[in-house]
Design a protein around this nucleic acid. Sequence first.
DNA 1: GTCTATAAGGCGATAGAC
DNA 2: GTCTATCGCCTTATAGAC
Lengths: 204, 204
Amino acid sequence: MGAVASHVIGKNARKSRECILDAAASLFSQNGYKGTTLRDIAKLTNMKAGSLYYHFSSKEELVLEILTIGLSNIIDTVVHDIDALPEGASAKDILVTAARGHLFALLEKPDYTSTSIRNYGQLPEDVQKRGRLVRDKYENMWRKWLQQAQDDGHIRSSVNLKVLRLTMLGSLNRTQAWYKKGDLSIDDIAKSQIDIYWCGIGNE
Amino acid sequence: MGAVASHVIGKNARKSRECILDAAASLFSQNGYKGTTLRDIAKLTNMKAGSLYYHFSSKEELVLEILTIGLSNIIDTVVHDIDALPEGASAKDILVTAARGHLFALLEKPDYTSTSIRNYGQLPEDVQKRGRLVRDKYENMWRKWLQQAQDDGHIRSSVNLKVLRLTMLGSLNRTQAWYKKGDLSIDDIAKSQIDIYWCGIGNE
DNA sequence: GTCTATAAGGCGATAGAC
DNA sequence: GTCTATCGCCTTATAGAC
């Protein structure tokens, strides 16, 4: 009986794990997956490269976890914001909320998300594959919201929803490439982008 | 007198050079700068790695040339299209022409341009620096066109031109990530995107 | 949990034969 | 012009001391 779990993850382990993830996410987003070595990550964590293997079984597993966190972070934020809308929220409200939520999640914790956006091509094949499943789920949510908004008459019927979805998500995601703290606020950017998409830039 | 240039670049050399550039651009755009080895490039060119050094002095020089070709290609296309506009073309005509030209150049020779868009972060520092000079020149052209269009009353005065420029170029450039030949035509995508930006998606 | 030491292999680049 | 061969370095990952 006296048997007790021989290896419970200690508190230090959990802390180190998070520290490694943060450091890795930052470096991956800056220098790419292949451009970041385990030694770089270890150095930023004040560890030695070999020690990382106590927490992660490979570089691949490490980047996969970062990828998953980044995508989940966006999805959770957006879904939470939409759930918080009052009962009778219109399809337009949902869309605007989704765009704002996406942008906030993207720009407030940029390291995790930009790892997935910028490095897709150079990630190992099966990391790409597993990431794609989560991303598809998220894109389907947008498909639904846009369709609903068009069905409800909030979006002009002549707008091609596929191009719209890819164009909107494209420019939202690209914001990360030019956003600088202290310049335009996230809120201002969100407002301007939504205004551009909703009203157009034309004057006639 | 009888002296003749002892080393003129032969026709085979020029052909090999182009072949190497094409192969490298394709691989860089797919697997990133660091994710592509000289051995990969050589294999796709039916050469051996060492032979590349007859044509390029380093991997860095090779990617810099691809970067320059890609950016010049976009700029040349856009400038040429705008020059071809009739005398009295409006600021709006210029803008629409620029967007179309950008998209065509981007999607018709994607390997060279996506090398510069996708791999910026992992490129060697001074390659980034030299590329930035060309890119800034191009962004300034857009700044001018947008300002002119707003001054002429073609763009609503409340539109933030900085956000607009970065958002538009962002979604145009991102198109490369989802464009597939045989699906939507470049022309359809251009039309839809311009319509979305110009008229907005809203219905009221 | 983290260290040191090191294995096994891939990388960019060079030298010299052909 | 392209080849073969190889140098020196850096990479991921492992083994065993502490």
